[in-house]
Write a protein that binds this DNA or RNA. Structure first.
Lengths: 189, 189
DNA sequence: ATCGCTTTTTGCCAAATGGCAAATCATTTT
DNA sequence: AAAATGATTTGCCATTTGGCAAAAAGCGAT
């Protein structure tokens, strides 16, 4: 819980009472390795915050290939915001790729907080904008780099992920095959 | 001007007086082909709206290659928001790639509007969020596709850009060489 | 330690893309 | 029209990456 409060206070200030209100709504949810936090074709119902573990967001492209869009590790928010906000079906799977412990808010509670806490709305906007900017900055530069550079960029961005998840997820994130990635790693050593 | 008002009204409602206030602050700016609207190393000073022409946003990567991050065509907002909001130096060039006519707001005027018009702040948030989401959705899927698919995706996203700009910009957007792109176009015909 | 399962590496060859320079095409200037 | 300039295409070959299947390595359960 402490981690989450610290996280949100980066984006604005709240008094004790407001923090208390928010804290009371959060519950701890465990999601086992390979289970889904939310799924394509369904409406996202929760906002989560990763206390422990690694999540990935993925989808299937036209050719049926599974593409990992990004990873989310400890002390980051996890929510399919487009789906959650607009009550529309998501087209992405949000999957735990290690056993995870999350702090979650139901949509009802989350909306209550937005209506109750003055300024929370603006803070959430900031949080979401920052997350979106991060997504642009992280994935889109990969487009113009070769496979080796992509892998090195991945290592910089997610330094504590590489040893905890299957190589195939990283390969699909980088847009290269698993065997290419394996060869690249050999060359780097 | 009409175009801009229509554009912003998609994101919320404003009364006549508010629209008047906003309209009064806007001025028309012409930017000639190849000139810059804002530059890397400087702080973005204006918010623009493209009335006519095409803009691109680009940067130089580690290897000194010029990378086009995205294009902005008619009836879209153009602003280096990170730089503009936080008064920090930008790392991207915003360049007219055809002769352009823009509607622009100075930072001072823009901030005055944010302080004056109730709800404008929220609308701007929505506009920026949508633009960010669009960037994620457009560029990042390219990572996992081959060059031909990337080009076809580009055509879908920017159908009225291809005949108005040099091929080299498209190639740098797609992360492929100009000669590869030329061959791909031959194969598609 | 062994078995069974999953993940990662490797070999072999094919396909895609890059690099560079020359040729072609298009557009503007004189 | 001719010349000059810039953009695009093409040829040739090198390099990178993919595809597929087998081998090797890692890991938990017995």
């Amino acid at each position: 819980m402490k981690e989450f409060i610290e996280y949100i206070l980066q984006f604005g200030s709240l008094n004790h009472q407001q923090i208390e209100l928010i804290s009371k709504k959060a519950i701890v949810l465990e999601v086992k390795k390979d289970e889904y936090f939310s799924e394509a074709g369904k409406v996202a119902q929760q906002v989560g915050f990763v206390l422990d573990g690694i999540i990935r967001v993925c989808y299937y492209n036209n050719k049926g290939e599974e593409i990992t869009k990004y990873f989310i590790d400890e002390n980051n928010l996890v929510v399919d915001i487009e789906s959650f906000d607009n009550d529309i079906c998501s087209n992405a799977y949000v999957q735990a790729i290690t056993d995870c412990k999350l702090l979650v808010f139901s949509k009802k509670d989350w909306r209550e907080l937005l209506d109750t806490i003055v300024g929370w709305d603006a803070m959430v906007h900031k949080i979401i904008s920052k997350a979106l900017r991060q997504k642009v900055e992280r994935r889109s530069p990969l487009v113009s780099e070769d496979a080796t550079t992509r892998y090195l960029m991945f290592l910089k961005i997610y330094p504590n992920v590489i040893n905890r998840i299957p190589l195939s997820y990283v390969a699909s994130y980088l847009g290269i095959t698993q065997s290419s990635l394996s060869r690249i790693r050999k060359n780097i050593r």
